[in-house]
Write a protein that binds this DNA or RNA. Sequence first.
DNA 1: AAGCTGTTTTGATGCATATCAAAAGATAAT
DNA 2: ATTATCTTTTGATATGCATCAAAACAGCTT
Lengths: 243, 243
Amino acid sequence: MAIATTPETIKVACSSCNLRELCMPISFGADDMQRLDEVVATRHHVKQGELLFRDGEPFKSLFAIRTGFFKTSVSTPEGHEQVTGFQMAGEIIGLDGIVTDQHSCNAMALEDAEVCVMPFANVEELSREFPVLQRHVHKIMSREIVRENSMMLLIGNMRSEERLAAFLLNLVQRLHARGFSQSEIVLRMSREEIGSYLGMKLETVSRAFSKFSDEGIIEVKQRYVGILNAPALKKIVNPTGCV
Amino acid sequence: MAIATTPETIKVACSSCNLRELCMPISFGADDMQRLDEVVATRHHVKQGELLFRDGEPFKSLFAIRTGFFKTSVSTPEGHEQVTGFQMAGEIIGLDGIVTDQHSCNAMALEDAEVCVMPFANVEELSREFPVLQRHVHKIMSREIVRENSMMLLIGNMRSEERLAAFLLNLVQRLHARGFSQSEIVLRMSREEIGSYLGMKLETVSRAFSKFSDEGIIEVKQRYVGILNAPALKKIVNPTGCV
DNA sequence: AAGCTGTTTTGATGCATATCAAAAGATAAT
DNA sequence: ATTATCTTTTGATATGCATCAAAACAGCTT
């Protein structure tokens, strides 16, 4: 199953986890809270560059990211990679494996990471018992469907600069929800990985960064990105400004 | 909620539905089978061109397509439409609405259609009672996530002709699973809708059709498409032929 | 059958992004 | 420090697809 992970087995409780608001924002009684802790079997560390799971591997568990940063990707037979998402603390990965009991994408740690291993059998069992958990699981899956809908819109309809602007805004918004700066990002992924995610080439990504930088909208220094003019970025994504 | 549908309210049982193998391929005892029938509250007819649900509308139910053909789509504020999927008999739509209790896309009937209305509260209640149904619901959502992953790969990495070839093969495969021909399709959607789905313009879709036709791979007569050389189509999608 | 409307095809041209190439800059290893 | 390796930037050019335009075609209406 999970390959390239350290065999470490720390048992830690959801009930006392500081990420619970993001990961399991559901309210239980004190007694039930102990039951909720049963969803997480163990924790695993994944080192930068290692795979948490890979395409074709048997599916057993979902993973909640505690620390670190992941990318998920699929590939053509010829080896062209398409990054399908970037995931950070509090987010759940592995949902792709449910349908066939096999994972259908790769999940690589872009920085040293720690994940909570949630055997899917546990998730389903507790979901039957606790409607609020059941609802939460459904929402997580639905959210992923909606996110991918909007990615199809982005890749299918927007131009390169709009895509990059949308990407940066989405990233900073999610980081801000985790207590990071509203205006500063340290990218965990390469230009090539951004390009793969957004359906463009790394050179095009680089050029778009340079253009935004020239226009004073952002400040770029390697993987550091400072957002100097967020409204301008938003206007690039949505020129009309309505909504 | 569901707009532009006839208020018809026919109560029909899943247990005796000829689409059950596609829609609810789960085996129950005779007694439990009656309970399963409770997922479907009513049926609705939707006329060609009408919306089953629209972006922003409150989410109450999932819909199982009994007959007919749908497209789902999202839009930019400026009004650019991105078709996110085409759905046919036996498939489930509405999953996008779960996360926010509001639909986030539009679902339009591309031909007169009939759907089974499955109030999501029923689905969740019965899922708690029947693990096999619970698992099925999870699989349906996971399948949608995996499908959208592969759409991102398609739109982000393939060229126009590869996209159209992949589209035709996918369509014919799904139709064949429903008892239709392996080599003939009557398209329910316009060139523009195909283009929107595949991230290309209607003219480009048309040119790709013409090219395939010139090469003798397919036969095109308006919305009728005959597949004359399926291996050639497959080779366009996957030139190396491995896998 | 004739006229109208919307869809599809085909052609000519333009543009955004890919591709090719090389330099500059960062990171890691010796 | 020095060299090697990988990433990023920038430039020159090519190309696939979009755009613009118009004709051909099918489906309706009268």
